[in-house]
Design a protein around this nucleic acid. Structure first.
Lengths: 206, 206
DNA sequence: CCCGGCATCGACCGATCGGTGGATGCCGCG
DNA sequence: CGCGGCATCCACCGATCGGTCGATGCCGGG
């Protein structure tokens, strides 16, 4: 039995979702919540397996709630269920730890499959949401620093000055400056701090 | 039936593990591999559910194998099973995508439970490994930048100079420098690039 | 009520960095 | 063979940054 919590600020939506699972034998709607804060506490209190989470809500938005939930109950799967016209929150939600991202116009049968999949820990993405992530993942491939440039950037991110990087790589400081200039050009930034920031945001560094 | 792959460079260890699952009805040892590279290809070829992975191996180490596997077969759960005296690889392994981290002195019955748990997507951590992660996760809480300091650091990470940060926050450049000095002290770094790097590594920035 | 943390601001100076315009050698590709 | 990409190196200069004194005002806890 998969225990589900419905978190949405519209009672009508909650009822609709509850109805979608009414005839499903292996899924039980264990509770409902009207905002993010209540969603987190209820998820913990009820010990649910999957949370259906809206994003735009009062008191605490869905992304924030996902973050809190990830800390309070890491085993709980969060399925984001948002309105069809707002697909721009995919990245924050996934980064926050959402297991899936669906739109509210998803057919009930697909929704049921998604809950089962989320319960198994599988990612469930609406096609449009998948596209958002693809673009995010593909970037590192498209924009490539050379091995040397990346090496230099990594050391800079670890706090090394140009001189220290030069010593560690057994080349001159002038070369370091050249490499960094190339990094700045490629990442479209103007200083080392921004380069480090972009490096992390693009997944080049870790 | 949970299909398991054993990846370890010691045949004796592999035999020992295989034996541990001999009388377990819901777990089937689908194959074995002697190094990371073979582990990845066998996991894909056999379509297993859970991989028991050693870390120190020839040709391709376990962490690297986990990374490859996460890309080639994201649904496969990896249970790291390493020697008792080397607990320092917890972070890399978990970051790479390991579902669990156990030591080789784990009793067979616990190991069996761990495989079932991993199959369900639950995290399984040896107590000592859990401690490693706790420390990592607690840091952001324990070491807190003030809201203002974080705000400044975020802007710096986005490429702003001190002057630009000052303008955006409607305060003087001198204050920015002071805030940054405090950030350097708290993060134990000496320049803005390293501060940005530490900020990302500690999860303060995103 | 006083102390400490936080945020704000100023001044000074040396060190470092970023920008520019070069240069060389190696290697692979057409 | 010539071209481009990569890595290496040099010099110069202005801008920025980091380090270190200092200071003020606000606020909340002991």
């Amino acid at each position: 039995m998969i225990r589900v919590l419905i978190v949405d600020d519209h009672p009508i939506v909650r009822n609709g979702l509850r109805g979608a699972f009414a005839d499903v034998p292996d899924i039980e709607v264990a509770g409902e919540a009207g905002d993010g804060r209540e969603g987190v506490s209820e998820a913990v209190r009820l010990g649910v397996d999957v949370v259906l989470m809206d994003l735009r809500m009062p008191r605490m938005d869905g992304v924030r709630a996902i973050v809190e939930l990830a800390r309070a109950a890491p085993d709980v799967r969060v399925l984001v269920l948002t309105t069809f016209d707002s697909e721009s929150d995919v990245l924050p939600a996934v980064q926050a730890g959402a297991t899936g991202y669906l739109l509210k116009d998803t057919p009930p049968e697909d929704l049921i499959r998604a809950v089962r999949a989320a319960h198994r820990g599988e990612s469930v993405l609406a096609p449009s949401a998948a596209g958002q992530l693809m673009g995010r993942v593909r970037r590192p491939t498209g924009l490539a620093l050379t091995a040397r440039e990346l090496e230099v950037l990594q050391l800079v991110a670890d706090g090394a000055s140009n001189r220290e990087v030069a010593r560690q790589l057994f080349i001159s400081e002038a070369s370091i400056k050249t490499h960094l200039q190339h990094v700045y050009d490629k990442l479209d930034v103007r200083d080392r701090a921004a380069a480090v920031g972009e490096g992390y945001r693009r997944g080049l560094l870790r």
